[in-house]
Design a protein around this nucleic acid. Structure first.
Lengths: 226, 226
DNA sequence: TATAAATTGATAGTATTACTTTTATTTTTG
DNA sequence: CAAAAATAAAAGTAATACTATCAATTTATA
């Protein structure tokens, strides 16, 4: 699995970048170091100037890969969701029982990223934390409809769609499968955030995981067909 | 109800502002026009300079009320949640049946704000839209723990707490009442956002409301005690 | 292997933002 | 009416988010 993951390239919409960061050493350093820096200082404080210094290159060189830091965030997010999608498809493939399949999917999608599989230069553990703290900012903008039309969110949308399909396979009569799917994905990020910063607003802690909460929620909600 | 609402002042943490905007005509114009402008141009494009022009005053005058636009957002959000809390407490007060009480609370908390009650200078319809699009940005910051300690999020937290209490009154054995409560509040904002920008990721549309989705979800999940 | 092409690095420049400071003017209030 | 407070106007600062230019270096290819 690890070896396999390492050899896969995640297909990201080419309009997100000016030059594919996977195509050069500098590009990989941009991705690698931006993850460390955004995690460290947060998205608002992160700038291309600082990144340039960090990678011992130049601001202007970074701009040749990404138009701006917003596009870089879209890139990192797409990478993350593409990686999760891959893990999910792999883990659920071949499970015949729809209930078990959905259960496994929820597990993959809502669990913490513990090990650094180190898919080349990308630190998935930190990337997961970045997504928890910053992903919303990538779509809560005035440009969202335009960017959606450009296809910048396709991977995330496909992931929700896959979850949606697993839900209706378990219970074809459930009336809100899309909403439930999007609630699981978005809600999971939120529960992780609350656990860290607003522990009173969640039941998740060291002993209770978002995975347990959402698994319980989904299977109380759905009525599996006989 | 409308009359009552108009005569109530929402108690907002005094550390959020430098000078109470309710205390002067200029302050009220700041709040009133900032709501229109943030709704119109989005939070990132909104600046105190532009606001100063709009209210026929000066940037520096705005800075005497709020340290920066982030604090202004915290203020507007507190106002909104305080207003919603008030509506909810009012609407559920005196309902003896816990299930009906919770149902009514969910209804209030997840429904669209349709009418402009025009609680003085605040346009609640637009404020609701601002909260949908911008609220996350108020806490997804590196300063969240500090600001939480300062009490900038108390009203929102109290609202989740109230919902939590109603949930356990309906089903004292449900193991995740805090998570469910926070999921309802946050998830509702998210479903409204999806309905507008990612209709494929939600079942909510002109005919199906987030209220229906969450009411259904909660009552499938909880087992009311006999 | 020479040369062209592409990439990168360094520097400088522009417009805007997010403020702060100062001073003048207006409004409020005792 | 005088003093105090609030507001307005203007200017200034440091940082951001870029763009443009050109030189240096690496890479590709003829």
């Amino acid at each position: 699995m690890e070896r396999l993951m390492r050899s896969i390239k995640i297909g990201i919409n080419e309009k997100i970048y000016l030059k594919d960061p996977e195509s050069s050493d500098l590009g990989k350093r941009i991705v690698e170091q931006s993850i460390l820096m955004i995690h460290e200082m947060g998205f608002e404080s992160f700038t291309f100037r600082k990144l340039g210094e960090q990678i011992q290159s130049n601001e202007s060189s970074v701009y040749r890969y990404f138009e701006n830091k917003h596009k870089l965030l879209l890139y990192l997010a797409s990478w993350y969701w593409g990686w999760l999608e891959y893990k999910m498809v792999f883990a659920t493939n071949g499970i015949p029982n729809p209930t078990e399949k959905l259960r496994r999917a929820i597990e993959i999608l809502t669990q913490t990223v513990k090990e650094d599989v180190t898919f080349s230069h990308v630190n998935e553990v930190l990337l997961n934390k970045i997504v928890i703290n910053e992903y919303s900012k990538s779509y809560l903008t005035k440009e969202v409809d335009l960017e959606n039309k450009e296809g910048y969110f396709v991977i995330y949308k496909r992931l929700v769609q896959r979850l949606h399909e697993m839900i209706i396979t378990v219970d074809k009569d459930y009336p809100y499968p899309s909403s439930l799917a999007s609630t699981i994905l978005e809600g999971s990020l939120h529960q992780y955030f609350l656990k860290e910063h607003f522990p009173n607003l969640t039941d998740c802690d060291d002993n209770v995981t978002p995975t347990q909460y959402f698994t319980d929620l989904v299977f109380r909600t759905l009525t599996p067909k006989a």
